[in-house]
Design a protein around this nucleic acid. Structure first.
Length: 493
RNA sequence: GGUGCCGUGCCCAAGUGGCCUAAGGGGUCGGUCUGCAAAACCGUUAUUCGGCGGUUCGAAUCCGCCCGGCACCUCCA
């Protein structure tokens, strides 16, 4: 098939370029997953959604995609964003925190947050990766990689661990622009380690027989360095050279820079042809940070009655390379839009059942709109335009209402399926009402009785009494809606 | 200090040299429907793109300066 070019910004060459694959029509894609020491927040999910959209778009233009996204279940040093750091371990710290009290050990803690992450993943309607490896399943390969790096002269052993020698890899800095020169100047006091040949050298293996998660290696007890896990897992599942690698913008340095150095040192081949980095999400105009404590979680928002599809919509309502401000108003706007899709979906389904004869008034226009949406996605994931086109189609479908013909409904079904496959915002696998009904403490029989009374009042044209009942319930936070078929439904605010 | 990004209507947000008298959404206002509402549907809402100057036949889009915001280098995707 003639394949549409998929244009994406590449952080390495710093330009938008067509995504190329080594094997024709088969994308090998690796994206960095979370460290499971806490719930993943919506900022984490913004970058996961970017990866999800890449996979969806690639498949929509007929590519085969092998997608690997890891789970980091080994604790890392909390200051691991310095290429090499000494610091407190994230997992260990989480275990000692208040939330950590419920776990017997770090392994349980990691497992708990891993499950939570997968649950949130489903709620946000992310497509399942082909492989979701865990760092702890690949420690053996990480040790082998450390040995090989030493053998090849790229790494050396010290009393504290095995370190990658940055000066042996002259291209270090090509991704982040952090030259070895500028790094030397930028090194903080905390990471001074006189055993290292150069302060910008980073750990491949840390020696530590006190660590809560430790493995035995030729260097004694210890645990792997953070960056080596992704190098090893990407290679294990996707080969020496992968087509695409993604992550949050903060991963660019040091994580991805170090991955490139290690992988290319090991294989002697280019590690990855295309790099994608998602900008950080801001919340109500502020950056999300631990110190500000302004994290939003998928489960927390859902508990407040937010449809997870609306969260997803809000996350993709701006292009991934620009900072996006996540606000309460934005969520409300998103929910309204999700409803538009759901309504179109209902109109379509009703039309399929009614089997009304007549012409197909939608087909041509919907096909054009979908093509435009797909084209937008192929232009560096322009989600706002893709959404605009999809919404236009949804409006056309809804407009048909009860008079939609069978052939129009069939075109609508095709369109909505395609849009849902591309953007994942038409149908969720999760039904919000289910949890809301469980958590509701409202006396529904009393409300039903009042609705019945109001219905009788309406029948006898006693509008005053009918409005009085509705007003009283509104004050309790219950909204009544009179449906066209004469029934009245209610919802809790 | 180094590096990079951004400033578009009341709000969110595309567009990065002519198809822009600037997409789409939210909100507003008006209408259809409804006993009245709500919802839905239809229509309305920027001669203008932070400011000033320049390049060009032509700029929101390129260049310069200024003002404002943000990100990474340091927790965090």
């Amino acid at each position: 098939m003639s394949q549409k070019p998929f244009r994406l910004y590449d952080s390495l060459s710093r330009q938008v370029k067509v995504l190329e694959t080594q094997e024709p029509n088969h994308l090998r894609f690796y994206s960095c997953g979370p460290t499971v020491y806490s719930y993943a927040h919506i900022g984490n999910f913004r970058s996961f959604v970017t990866s999800d959209l890449i996979v969806r778009t690639a498949r929509a233009i007929g590519m085969k995609v092998t997608w690997v996204t890891n789970i980091t279940d080994v604790g890392h040093l909390t200051e691991d964003d310095v290429a090499d750091a000494q610091g407190e371990d994230k997992m260990e710290r989480a275990l000692r925190s208040k939330e950590g009290e419920q776990f017997n050990n770090v392994w349980e803690l990691a497992e708990y947050y891993e499950d939570a992450y997968k649950e949130d993943w489903k709620h946000l309607n992310l497509v399942e990766p082909n492989v979701r490896p865990k760092a702890t399943q690949h420690v053996r390969e990480q040790i082998l990689a450390a040995e090989e790096l030493i053998d090849k002269g790229f790494a050396y052993e010290t009393p504290t661990g095995v370190y990658f020698s940055v000066e042996k890899f002259p291209e270090y800095g090509k991704l982040s622009g952090n030259t070895q020169e500028s790094l030397r100047k930028g090194v903080r006091d905390v990471v001074m380690d006189e055993n290292k040949h150069d302060q910008s050298d980073f750990a491949v293996w840390k020696k530590d027989d006190k660590h809560l998660m430790q493995w035995f290696s030729p260097y004694g007890w210890g645990f792997p360095g953070w960056h080596i896990e992704c190098s090893v897992m990407a290679r294990a599942y996707l080969g020496d050279t992968i087509d695409l690698h993604s992550g949050g913008e903060d991963n660019k340095f040091p994580h991805h820079e170090c991955e490139i150095a290690q992988s290319e040192a090991l294989t002697g081949k280019p590690f990855c042809g295309h790099w994608v980095h998602t900008s950080h999400l801001q919340v109500n105009g502020q950056k999300m940070s631990k110190s500000l404590g302004n994290f939003y979680y998928v489960r927390g928002l859902m508990k407040d009655g937010v449809d997870p599809l609306a969260i997803r919509f809000a996350l993709i309502s701006g292009v991934y390379r620009k900072n996006l401000n996540f606000t309460d108003q934005g969520l409300v706007d998103a929910a309204t839009n999700i409803d538009r899709f759901k309504r179109a979906d209902e109109t379509m389904k009703a039309g399929l059942e009614a089997k009304r004869a007549g012409e197909n008034t939608l087909g041509t226009e919907l096909e054009k709109l979908y093509d435009e949406a797909l084209e937008a996605m192929c232009s560096d994931l322009n989600t706002p335009v893709a959404i605009a086109k999809s919404l236009e189609g949804a409006k056309l479908i809804s407009k048909e209402g009860d008079s939609i013909t069978l052939s129009s409904a069939q075109s609508a079904e095709k369109f909505l399926n395609l849009v849902n496959d591309l953007l994942g915002i038409v149908r969720g696998s999760f039904h919000l009402q289910a949890i809301q009904e469980n958590t509701s403490n409202v006396d529904s029989s009393r409300i039903e009785a009042l609705i019945q009374e109001r219905k009788e009042a309406k029948a006898s044209k006693n509008w005053a009494r009918a409005d009085e009942i509705r007003k009283a319930l509104t004050e309790e936070g219950i909204t009544l809606t009179d449906n066209p078929d004469g029934t009245t439904s209610w919802a809790q605010a």
